[in-house]
Design a protein around this nucleic acid. Structure first.
Lengths: 247, 247
DNA sequence: CGACGGTTTGAGTCCGGTCAATTGTCGTGG
DNA sequence: CCACGACAATTGACCGGACTCAAACCGTCG
């Protein structure tokens, strides 16, 4: 069912740089370059599957057997949970370099969907488990990553439980800016690949409120909206005060 | 500063069953009974410190150097984050058997305070790191725990971002009931050691709203309030429908 | 018994949600 | 090239659930 939604990349897309591309992909996938010997990367690469997913397609669904995990090579992904009546909470956005599906349960506890067209590298979970036995340093790395994610999750609880709509949007914009700065694109100009509805579902708001707050921040001169998806941070200091609740 | 707030248990409190008590405590602390050889537990026990903390006292504070972690032997603890203006989000409640402070950052990213009088077993973090090198199985265990906590955190985001006040309280009561059933005390009668304000700060509500919802659920016959802190779940099915959003 | 902290209840307000209409954007096909 | 349709974003009017402020109640403990 999952496989149906996914499109295998044509074999020859990789011809030429195949081994190298996949080794580096494998290494990045596990963020354990320092923990694995380069010569061992080939084995990982052997069982990888490159895939392209269209915007809007599902990568995995809550409740499904957790058989694989993904390394996002390109594009943006949203991770979310649904209530029976359709209410949705997006628990995170993932971008190039992020890992998806690293659950240690039998089934996924969340769904994931492509926001833009996405390239991923898919690994069987069993493979990972074998690797963990072999390279204990990887486990430590994963533990650190999980610990970090947990801290991020707690910060998000603070946002969802206690911040106002303005504070939420300000926090969100700064977080995206920080993330995009970390991964190359520096500067005050940030790109929002997700819709206002996605942003709202991430921040516990409605589309309308999210939109209104964007307009309000623009009118106050804190941000500029070149298009709906391109934001320039005009007054970072004030935005930061807003985000932390000092304003 | 942290140490000031803590009261060393009198040495002789442990005389007699010392070694045994602390070995079992150490084992429980790490939830790795299956991963550590019994004869190795003594080393862990050697560096443990038993402590008693009064209700209301702080166990650790956000920003402090993360030098120790704790095993809660008895009592209830709240974990929370604060905003500069005093807004508070409680990110979790911990009870006997739970671990606290297992961060892999240099400083704690949250504060923790005793709700009731609490007995803890305190370990230096360095000790843990040495053990992790020695017993790789522990790492896997910790990874599974972290992964599980992450799933719980995402569930809480759903609650904070999308559920109504009634749904939040219903979810909370059922979660506490499940937790108390798991740790022995079965049945429909649950104990809430925390105040209404704590519950509200955990669920992203105000004290008043929390209280009103309790009264409302009581009037509808879904729960009974023997005292403010003792709740009998009278209609679990309806409460479950409420919690999941089917009602 | 009286003081104190926690809980409950009441009255009124407001922030963010709902419903609805309009505008903007972009890809497609005539 | 432009008209059209689909979907996202914005804006407006109104509503209501949860918040605020304030008072009363209750249980516990000195």
């Amino acid at each position: 069912m999952l496989a149906m939604a996914l499109t295998e990349m044509p074999r020859n897309a990789n011809v030429g740089g195949r081994a190298h591309a996949c080794e580096s992909c494998a290494a990045r996938a596990l963020s354990i370059c320092s923990a694995i010997e380069p010569r061992d990367l080939g084995r990982l690469a052997a069982s990888r599957t490159h895939q392209c997913i269209d915007a809007g397609e599902s990568l995995l669904e809550e409740g499904e057997a957790a058989t694989h995990f993904f390394n996002i090579i390109e594009g943006a992904v949203k991770v979310f949970k649904l209530m029976p009546d359709g209410r949705r909470q997006i628990t995170g956005f993932l971008f190039a370099g992020d890992l998806l599906g690293l659950a240690f349960n039998d089934t996924y506890t969340y769904s994931a969907e492509a926001i833009t067209a996405v390239k991923v590298c898919r690994f069987p979970r069993r493979q990972l488990e074998r690797l963990l036995d072999e390279f204990p340093k990887m486990e430590k790395r994963l533990l650190a990553m999980a610990s970090n994610e947990l801290a991020v999750a707690q910060e998000q609880m603070m946002l969802l439980g206690r911040k106002t709509a303005h504070e939420r949007i300000a926090s969100f914009l700064l977080a995206v800016a920080a993330r995009q700065a970390r991964s190359g694109r520096g500067g005050e100009r940030i790109t929002l690949p997700m819709t206002r509805t996605d942003i709202a579902d991430y921040l516990g708001l409605t589309t309308e409120t999210a939109s209104r707050v964007f307009t309000s921040l623009k009118k106050q001169g804190y941000i500029e909206l070149e298009t709906a998806g391109t934001v320039r941070i005009a007054d970072r200091d004030t935005l930061e005060e807003l985000a932390t609740g000092l304003e």
